[in-house]
Structures are given as C-alpha cells and as structure tokens.
Write a protein that binds this DNA or RNA. Structure first.
Lengths: 337, 337
DNA sequence: GGTGTCGATGTGACCGTGCACACGCAAGGA
DNA sequence: TCCTTGCGTGTGCACGGTCACATCGACACC
C-alpha cells in the first residue's frame, strides 16, 4: 500500500566516495568542476556516479549554499497569449542555465496578496524573481516593500527599483498609428487597455505621439479590459458614431471583438472603418478580415529577463538590451480611405 | 557592490527558541501544529516568530523530510490555450494546498529528453508530477522508465501506469458530429490532429462513432498539426472538393484557419459548408462567422489533477472523478442545409 | 639542504530542520 | 503506595551537501 516510504535511501555523495575509494569532498569537487583534480581520479568518481545512478540532492545543496538554483515567476496575467509566451521563454532560458522555475499566479493585486507572494517565493529560497504583473500598482507595492532579492520586471515601469524591460510599446503603438495615418486616416480612435496597466499607458502614449506629430485631432480613449467581449460591445457602441474612420485597439483580442461588433452593426471593415490591433496572436492572420497588428517577440523578452536576472544574481555585469523592436504586420483590416 | 552576500544570516528556529525561552523542538512543534502544546507556550513562540520575522527554511525541511512540498509540471505543449489554462488551474490548486509548482517544458519528445526531464524533476525532489504531454509516445516512455514517484497525466492514455484524466474527448467529439448530423449534414469530413496525439485519436473516435451510429459514410481524416496555418491550407485544398457539406475540425485554431481558407476560395460558411471546432478558445465567439465548437473546462481539469496527485502523495483515498463533461456551443459556423 | 609554493586530496564542522527518544510530572487504576 | 498512561517539553542526532582548514608530496629557488 505505502510504496513511496519503502523506497530505499538514495545514494549520497559518501556512497559514491566509498565506491570510488576517495573522500566525499573529492566527489563534491568533481561535481562542481573544481580545477585541481587528477583526470584519473575524476574518471573513477564519474564511474561510481554512473554505477550508483547518483543524483545530487538539491535541498542539501540549497541548505548549505543558501542558493536554490531556482527562479520565481510572479505573474498576474493568467492565460493571456503574450505573458504566457514570455513565460515559456523564461523557462527555456532558465533551464538552459541550469535553473529551475517556480511559478506563482496572483489571484488579485492587493498589496497583501503581492506581499504574500513575494514572501512565499522568498521562503522557497528562489534566487531571483521575474515579475510579469504589468499593473502600475504592483510596482508601487514592490517598490514599497523593498524586496530583498534580485528581480526583473517584464514591463517598462518608470521609477521601479528592479531592472525592467519590455518591447518598445510606445514605438509599436506609434507605428500602428502612423500606419493608419499613412493610409489616409485622420480621425483615429483608440480602444485602450485598463487604466492601471503600464502597457495600456505606453500604447496610448504611442497613439497620442503619432497623432500629435501629424497634427491630427486626438479623441478621449475608450477604456477596455483587454477582452474580446469588451471589444464586441465597443464595436456596437461605436457603430452609432460617425466621427472617425479608424480604430487602434490596444490588443488583438479587443480588436477581434471590435471586428465582430462592427460586423453585427453593419459597419464594414476596412471599407467603412479600418482597425489595427497589437500583439499578433496566432489567429490574427486568419480572422475576417485578417487583422493588421503589431508583432512582438514575447519569448525573447522572457529570455532577456533571465539573462539580466542571472547576471544580477551572479554579480556579473548586467547586459544592456536596447528596447525590443516591434514589427508592423499590415493585413486586410486597415486599408486606405 | 555585493549586497546579497552581506545579508546577515536569517533567523533560524533556534533563534526563535532562544527568544521565546523554549527549545528548538517546541518551535518546530508550533510550526507543524503539533497537538500537545500549551496555548501559552504556543503564543510565546508565535510572538517570537513575529518579532524576528522568522520564515521556515524550505531547503532544510526538504532535506530532513525528503519532501519538497513542490509539484512538477511536465509539459510538451507550449503556448497553446488548452494546456496553458490547465496549468493555471494546477498552479492555483497546488498553491491553495501549500504546494509550490515547478514547470518544465519539453523541447522535444525523444525518450532521452523525457528521461532527462523526469530525472531533473526528481533531482528537484518534487513530490509528484503532472504530465501534460498528450503524445502517445510520451506515455510509452513514461511507462517504460517506471517513474519512481506519483504522477498524473492530463489526457486519457490507455494502459498508462499513472492515473490519468481528461475531459470526455470522445463524447465531446461525438456531440459535435451529432450536431452537424442534426442540422441535416450527411457528408462530414474530419480535420484531425497529429497521429501521435491522444486527444487527436479520441476526437477522431468520437467523430467515427457519431457517423457510424447514424449510418453515415466516413471519410479518411485529414491529418493536421493543430495550427491555424494548416487549417488555412486545408481550406484551400478542400474547396476543390464537393463531396462534403460539413467539417469537424479537431481544434478551434485549425477551424479558424479553415474558415479563412474557405473564405479565400469563395466557399461560404455556413451557406456552402458548415464548420465546427473544439476547445472554445476566447476568440471563437467572435470570428466571422462565429465558430460553433465544444467547450471544455481546462482549469478544472488541472485542479482535479492536483487533487488526485496530492491524494496519492499523502496516501489518502484517491478521489474518483467521472469524465469531465464538455459543452456544445452552437454558433453561426454550423447551420442546417 | 632548508624553505616556500602549489597541486591533489582528506578531515571535521556546519547549514536549519524533523524525528526518535527521554524526561518530569500529574492523573488514574490496582 | 506503586505502576501505568499521557501530556508537555527537552536532548541529540541525522539528512546530504559545501566550506575552511589541514595534510602531504613534488618541485623550484636561493
């Protein structure tokens, strides 16, 4: 019945040492690639390791070194395409460097919840944290609580203590806006993300910059919640207005909902109104009409985060990455007037 | 410059004991909710813990108990909506039970890669593994290597050693097929998933069952790769054929690509051909035409997996879950002849 | 030939917890 | 009164690594 507890003790470093006829410390040296060890001694040890199928015990190592070889991911955006892709990038990069990854999803972003999450990760002895919680408030909380370990955030946050990085949201949003302008549009609405989100703000700034540069009128943004459902209702609402010819939606999901809302209201895209999104999710190229959008390399963002974090942990020079370029993907949903 | 290493030693159980005027073992008992401890002693200890901001050291605990309070997620399906949603469910359920979660993405599904992944997780001392690697071969490898710890797989695999569970793929696929039949279709194609995938096989079985039951002709399935791009090309190909009036795609992504391919070829959906998908991804309700599909509760699947795994780990009665019901979501893309 | 340096290896302590066991004491039964 | 039982608590060790230090021989240098 109880099979797990009957399992014999796993071989330890001392078992290996005995079999190889050396001291346990020598085995430890082999495991850690210590330079001064005779090749033939090393070979004996490696043989013994193979024979016993010895595997180092991470807990023991973590206990004595106070390093867990584990990175924490603190995320508040579950299930969305972008963050999820970044997490995949983080994991791959971390594993490549021999680090494992412990993920923690925030259910809500109250200061207490964030505090608990960080404490939890700190208990788990993670060596560093990547934060994917792009709400402004999360940063304020993090700054306020002075996290006692290295951390990197995946979105640009002005004034945050930890390092942060992201694709160049402002430039991407501006490129989207300029694309619409170049197609002859002058009355361009913005379907923005929630007020608290840093990315929402950056994309709105890009939108405003683009319009101001071209001396075009700006409109008060419509505040959405990133969901396709919201986009749908926004489309129905907007179909009643006739003071614009193009919409820049802050993400693809809202843009696709918008297409649906327009369709249901008899507004033809791109004939009557042009639409452009942001993110380039996998279906963007296949919806009707195919969605013009701004592509960003989420996994690369995750990989960069890991490189920065590891440099901090190891006390090495922290690499400087320029902002990650976004790529405009012009498709059918945005057309000339 | 080196701030991390200067950090003073964190308070240990003995520091707490000294401050509270008890032995370290008493502190340990308080931490582990040992029954026989005087309330006033407990209060003293808790005070000391609060004063010192003491946090238990997971590594030390893991070392002595050989339990890490950590679950591993072994995943080979990066970035897809379904698995990702299940992972979110797994994490939430695990955290609720006080377990942390270590995720590991397989880059490929060779036996070596799978073996390394399991070994890696075992080194990390995870107490159990949830496997989200729905390829048949993964199961064969897992079965072959006799994993020495509890594991649960998230897809039905006949003959696997570990427990496994999933939504009732066969019933869902059958419901989709029957929906098409009830709309008057009798020539129904299946755009299947890759041969190696268990879910692909289950969904195909449901399709075949549904047709056989109704005494309708079956067609050799078209083997896809789950991507919208493949669906698109399939749509272009299929537009040349006229021997069918409906298509059941094994997932929504392919279905959406299919809609695109049909659209580009002048095939009208649902006027000329009906299409139904599987998964109910968030955009399914918004593409044009809105996509009929089969909904499944991925997060719940993840939560159930955790409950089963923890029961195994704790040696409790493993809960029996019936197959998770799927829900048919009839929308515009499937219509009567 | 004495002394210092370096390479290769061994010895023992220590990291922070939980467990087995021991102990003192009070209550209850013989 | 003595023995058992159980509660509340303390003592010492074990877990499996790494680190600081000791040891020992080979070699170079003066």
């Amino acid at each position: 019945m109880s099979s797990a507890s009957e399992r014999a003790r796993l071989p330890s470093i001392r078992d290996v040492a005995r079999l190889a006829g050396v001291s346990h410390q020598t085995v430890s040296r082999v495991l850690n690639d210590h330079p001064s060890i005779r090749p033939e001694t090393k070979a004996k040890v490696l043989d013994a390791i193979a024979v016993l199928d010895y595997r180092p015990n991470f807990a023991a190592r973590a206990l004595v070194t106070s390093k867990s070889n584990m990175l924490g991911i603190l995320s508040a955006t579950i299930g969305e395409f972008g963050p999820t892709s970044s997490i995949a990038g983080i994991e791959d990069a971390a594993r490549e460097e021999g680090y494992s990854v412990s993920t923690l999803n925030l259910a809500d972003t109250t200061p207490e919840a964030i505090g608990n999450a960080v404490r939890q990760l700190s208990r788990e002895q993670v060596d560093g944290i990547v934060v994917l919680a792009p709400q402004v408030r999360v940063f304020h909380v993090l700054r306020g609580m002075s996290v006692d370990m290295p951390f990197v955030t995946l979105q640009t946050a002005s004034g945050s203590d930890g390092v942060s990085l992201s694709a160049d949201q402002v430039a991407g949003a501006r490129a989207a806006t300029e694309h619409l302008i170049s197609l002859g549009h002058s009355d361009i609405l913005h379907l923005a993300g929630p007020q608290d989100w840093i990315e929402a703000e950056s994309r709105m700034r890009g939108y405003l910059d683009g319009l101001r540069e071209a001396d075009l009128p700006t409109f008060p943004p419509i505040r959405g919640d990133w969901t396709a459902d919201f986009g749908y209702f926004a489309g129905k609402e907007l179909s009643l207005r006739r003071d614009f010819t193009a919409v820049f939606a802050a993400n693809d999901l809202m843009a696709i909902g918008l297409l649906h809302g327009f369709r249901d209201s008899g507004v033809r895209v791109p004939h009557d109104v042009s639409v452009i999104g942001f993110d380039d999710i996998p279906v963007a190229a296949h919806v009707a009409p195919t969605l013009s959008t701004v592509h960003q390399d989420f996994p690369e963002l995750g990989r960069r985060a890991v490189r920065i974090l590891l440099a901090q942990i190891r006390g090495e020079q922290v690499p400087e990455f320029g902002p990650l370029q976004t790529i405009l993907r012009a498709r059918e949903s945005a057309a000339s007037r």
